[in-house]
Every structure is written in C-alpha cells, then in structure tokens.
Amino acid sequence: MSTETVDKKLVKESEPLFSKKNRKLLSDPLDDNNPITVQVLGICSALAITVQLKPAVVMSLSVLFVMGAGNVIISLIRNLIPQRVRIIVMLTVVASLVILVDQVLKAYLFDVSKQLSVFIGLIITNCIIMGRFEAFAMGNGLWKSFLDGIGNAAGYGVILIMVSVFREFFGTGTLWGIQLIPESWYMSNGGFYSDNGMMLLPPMALISVALIIWVQRANNRKLIEDK
C-alpha cells in the first residue's frame, strides 16, 4: 500500500512505458508482494483448483484476463464512479468479465469449461481482484493499472501452478494428464509405489501453500520480520 501512494506522487506524464517503477509493478507481486503468499488473498481458489495442473493454468489465464481488463476498466472510469457505490460498480465489472470468460470457454474450450465448472464463478469472489481494484485501479492511470493487474494475476498464477504441479505429481503421478511415474512402479502392478491420495484433498493445498510461504520467507530478506 505504501509503495502505491509513493508511486502516485511520482507519476509523470513523460514516463517511459517500462520504466523501473512500472517494471516493479509487474515484478513485485511475483515475489515481494505476492497476493497469495504475502498478502494471503485468493486462498479459496488456490485450494479448490490445484488438484491438477491444467485447470490451474486455465484458471490463472482467466484471472489474468479478468484482472488486466478489470483494472483497465476501473481505471478508465475511476473519476466517474460515485464513491458510495464503488464496491458495487467493481463487483459488476468483475462479474460481467467473468460471465464473458465463462461463455467464451463454453463455446471454444468446452472440456476445460466443464472441468472448471463452478470455479469460474469463483473468480468473482477472488478477493485479489477486488483488492487491486480498490487499492490500485481507483487511484492510478490506465497503463499502470494494467501492469498492476497483470502482475498480480501472474503472481497468483505462479503459486497456483507450483501448488498444482506438486499436488498432481504426488497425488496421481501425472502432469498435465500425462503419466510420469511408470505404471510398473505401482503396487497394483507388483511395484513399490502408491500415489498419495491425501494430496488430492483440500487440506494439502493449504499445506503446500504454507510450505511455499516458508521457503519464500526464509529466502527473501524483505519478508523477514523484525523481532
């Protein structure tokens, strides 16, 4: 939050498209200010759709679209939005974009839309999106808001993909639906290996996210809190 207000003061019209500050908008949410592991937002969907890699990737792309477009729209109309109904306006923008994504998936990526089914609707309730609208797009210009949306969606997607790779590989022995652990290793075929069924259950998503937070906090100086 503090960096954003500083940014706002320093904005100049002649700033290059990918100035250092703008690049930071993209890269910050990937690590230092990751929406899932640092801000701990959007946990609900991280838990729900990370059983397999493919839906996680499609979810990330959908969120990327909704956040990029949503941030731009909110930023465009930010001076027109009446303060008292701004949350409702944001919700309407998110909901419309999500319905659009859902309709397009149903028409052109039918199998994926079947797999994501209820979770597409969950994008609406993804607090990262509302959070960025309120905290960033309401106070910043179009290009910055776009970068911020893309950056945060990417930060969200990276964690989603990490968790889903972990869960799919150990839970079903596959990645992107392709069998990676040889069939002959399995106990049912006389081998020694068995998939860890617990990986498929929701608690393992939280545990995976927690492990990622642990590793990240141990390695990122900025995130180590003062005693």
């Binding site: 001076n79 027109l80 939005i81 009446p82 303060q83 008292r84 109904v85 409702i88 306006v89």
Partner: peptide
C-alpha cells in the same frame, strides 16, 4: 459525482 441523482443515473 457523489450526489444522489448522479449515483442513480450512473447505476
């Protein structure tokens, strides 16, 4: 942008 009528029209 914060008057009642504007809010209604905007919505």
């Amino acid at each position: 942008t914060n008057s009642n009528s504007y809010t209604f029209i905007f919505s």
